[in-house]
Design a protein around this nucleic acid. Structure first.
Lengths: 361, 361
DNA sequence: TTGAAAGCGCTAACAA
DNA sequence: TTGTTAGCGCTTTCAA
């Protein structure tokens, strides 16, 4: 039962016009008499006709598709980027093709290859490993490409959009240190990822005085029971007063560890999370977190890409855009200075709600 | 500088074979002598050649693309579905085209239209509104389609995959009631969405005894300051002892409200969250939550779709698959019965960690 | 095992 | 304003 799909020819016949007229109605490239247009649209609707992109693209040689490759779609950071790029692209008449590597470096090359066979007008890639497959060099010559996040901004082969990881690491280090903390635990995922390494590096720069001490755990990017290692570190180093997670997954691992040790954040332990998310503020003790400007990262990447696409004749120099992350200060980092200075210790805030509380129970 | 893309012809010339041979090397549909194959692949690599899908698809009439349309990619529930479908599809040699409506019903029709022009082999749609645009009826005749989540399983036009929302609503109602709660607040997003309405309905069935009382707030699907309405309800009804959020966004709104009122979950107020997420267990008081079998939803939809695609000749009857959600019990729902019966009130668990705590500060 | 040639559905160039 | 026609890059006969 392989009934033929309706084609431009069917519509032309049904509307009593030529192929070219139908084409013009849908492409809008040439004026069509209103009455013809109406008949064409009516026939198309009735027959359920949609322009065939494959044929259109093949014939015209133009392509209004851009491809996006991310490590994981089910990671807020990446899905927000994809979502934002899609919004901007559609707005400009482009369609977006999304692929993910599911965090597998060996999948990356084959996914890129698959994307390439769509002949996209441009490519936005969040490299899974930070190292680009060689496939890029040969097949991608001359295709607009923007690399995002997990990449070295100092590369001079492609445009890049990153955040200043060293700087936000430094700022966080300085922030925590100013609050009086001197022994700290850094929870990293995979130190071989450039952004993670830079965050660490920046932090250590700010936290390098004689009496400063930093422990580092590397949990890997698979997060299998990562919190146990955090628990161990905390137990082995009772003088640790604060923890800084270097990405979202290790933020969760850290919190799990606190929960297991029955440590109250912002009371027994200070904490800085990475990648702000809605739930971090929907707590009694809001989590102080590093917020990456995700949407801005996406829009910057999009702007760079479309600029190259629309000026493919011009030689535009490679650009590396570095954006800035910020610390959203909430209540999870205690100021030890004031305590040391005899600051009057108060009960946790929610104790004041005993009245309401007891009314309810 | 419009340098021509390398085509199958270039590869054929470089390898000294015919077009057909190159085609066969990449499609694998006919045997090719090993030496020819090697020369072809070598030439292709050198020239950076990838089969042009548009041309391939146009000529062959076959299409290995499936399209997925969701309301939002940056929503864990949907992005997990997309991610899982993509994984399964690629495994079978299909490519996935993702589009989102950004929650806008009026965008839905145009997105579907755009997807259709790719001539996909099948379509998986999470309707934004629960009402399908008419476009479906005309243009989609005969195309395999599976509707997921926001749809009425009783439809007999398309295959559907949903969860038993009424049942999980009922179970939650029964659970909370068994814990002794009698006055409760339900926090809904948009009651016009079938799943939300069913959850509510099921809950009310279990919570309908003479002394039961349920307040319902509808916050809308835009979640602008939704938590304020929860705060109001809680203040107006001091006898409310438990809250059930009907979806993920209202879960966050509820928690924000508790935080604003300085109510400790699992102590001053009982709470059941919707859509389990990692952070819900990474807390001192883990959140009891309804977990939807997201991956199973995705794989079921995929299985149904591929079945139809691969048996397009056969008439398969419409199927409605209804999966079951489950309650993940943690600590956020207090058992009021035992309290009422003179249960010895204990300090919150983390008080036992004072020793560790004081060591740290 | 390979090659030659036709044609998928569309758009662009040109003619009317 | 509309119609005619060639051909985009590929796959699929069919013949060698």
């Amino acid at each position: 039962m392989k009934l033929k799909k309706t084609s431009i020819r069917d519509v032309a016949e049904a509307a009593g016009v030529s192929l070219a007229t139908v084409s013009n109605v849908f492409s809008g490239k040439k004026r069509v008499k209103e009455s013809s247009e109406r008949r064409v649209r009516e026939a198309a609707d009735r027959l359920g006709y949609h322009v065939d992109r494959a044929a259109s693209q093949l014939r015209s040689g133009t392509n209004t598709t851009i491809a996006v490759l991310v490590p994981n779609i089910d990671d807020t950071f990446f899905s927000t980027i994809v979502s934002e790029i899609e919004r901007l692209a559609i707005n400009k008449g482009y369609d977006v093709l999304v692929a993910s590597t599911h965090g597998l470096a060996e999948v990356e090359a084959s996914r890129i290859s698959a994307l390439m066979s769509w002949r996209p007008a441009g490519l936005i890639v969040v490299p899974t490993t930070g190292v680009l497959p060689d496939i890029f060099r040969s097949s991608i010559a001359n295709l607009p490409i923007v690399l995002v996040d997990r990449t070295d901004p100092k590369t001079n082969e492609f445009d890049t959009v990153t955040i200043d990881n060293r700087k936000i690491g430094y700022s966080t280090g300085a922030y925590v240190r100013a609050k009086g903390h001197r022994h700290l635990l850094l929870v990293a995922s995979d130190l071989s990822y450039p952004p993670i390494a830079s965050r660490l590096e920046g932090f250590l720069e700010a936290f390098s005085a004689a009496d400063d001490k930093v422990e580092v755990v590397e949990l890997g990017d698979e997060h299998r029971n990562g919190h146990q290692e955090v628990v161990n570190q905390l137990q082995e180093n009772p003088s640790i007063t604060a923890v800084f997670a270097l990405n979202y997954m290790t933020t969760l691992d850290s919190l799990s560890a606190f929960s297991e040790l029955e440590l109250v954040v912002g009371q027994d332990i200070s904490f800085v999370a990475f990648d702000d998310d809605l739930w971090m503020s929907a707590r009694l003790t809001g989590l102080t977190a590093v917020r990456q400007p995700v949407k801005e990262i996406a829009s910057t990447a999009w702007t760079r890409l479309i600029e190259r696409i629309e000026n493919s004749e011009t030689k535009i120099p490679i650009q590396s855009k570095v954006l800035t992350a910020e610390i959203i200060e909430r209540k999870s980092v205690i100021d030890i200075n004031s305590r040391a200075a005899g600051f009057k210790e108060t009960k946790p805030a929610y104790y004041n709600s005993e009245v309401i509380g007891s009314k309810r129970i």
